[in-house]
Amino acid sequence: MASVPILVAFAIAGAVLAWKGGDYLVRASDRLGAYYGLPAIVQGAIIAAVGSSFPELSSIIIATLRYGAFDIGIGAVVGSAVYNILVIPAVSALVGEGQRLASNRDLVYKEAQFYLLALAVLVLTFSLAVVYEPVGSPTSLEGFVTRPLALIPLLLYGLYLFMQYHDTLDHRASQTTVPSTVDPRRQWAILVASLAIILAGAELLVRSAVGFGDVFGTSPFLWGLTVVAAGTSLPDTFVSVTAARQGNAPMSLANVFGSNVFALLVALPIGILVAGGTVIAFQEIIPMMSFLTGASIVFFAVLRTEMALTRGESFVLLGTYGLFILWLVAESLGITAFVG
Score class of each variant (00 low, 15 high):
104 N>M: 10
84 N>R: 05
101 L>M: 09
55 P>N: 09
125 T>G: 05
126 F>K: 08
54 F>M: 13
54 F>S: 13
105 R>Q: 14
97 E>D: 10
56 E>A: 09
126 F>H: 13
60 I>F: 13
66 R>Q: 15
61 I>P: 01
116 L>P: 03
111 E>C: 06
94 L>R: 06
126 F>R: 10
122 L>V: 12
125 T>F: 06
108 V>Y: 09
66 R>C: 14
69 A>R: 09
126 F>A: 15
66 R>A: 15
77 V>C: 08
92 S>Y: 07
60 I>Y: 15
62 I>L: 14
105 R>A: 08
67 Y>W: 15
98 G>V: 02
89 P>W: 11
68 G>K: 10
53 S>P: 10
107 L>D: 03
93 A>H: 01
70 F>G: 05
87 V>G: 03
115 Y>C: 01
106 D>S: 15
84 N>L: 03
97 E>A: 12
102 A>H: 08
103 S>G: 13
52 S>G: 05
111 E>N: 05
107 L>I: 07
71 D>N: 11
82 V>P: 06
66 R>E: 14
91 V>L: 15
127 S>K: 05
109 Y>P: 01
97 E>W: 09
101 L>V: 07
74 I>E: 00
61 I>H: 05
100 R>A: 04
105 R>S: 15
94 L>S: 13
70 F>M: 13
90 A>T: 00
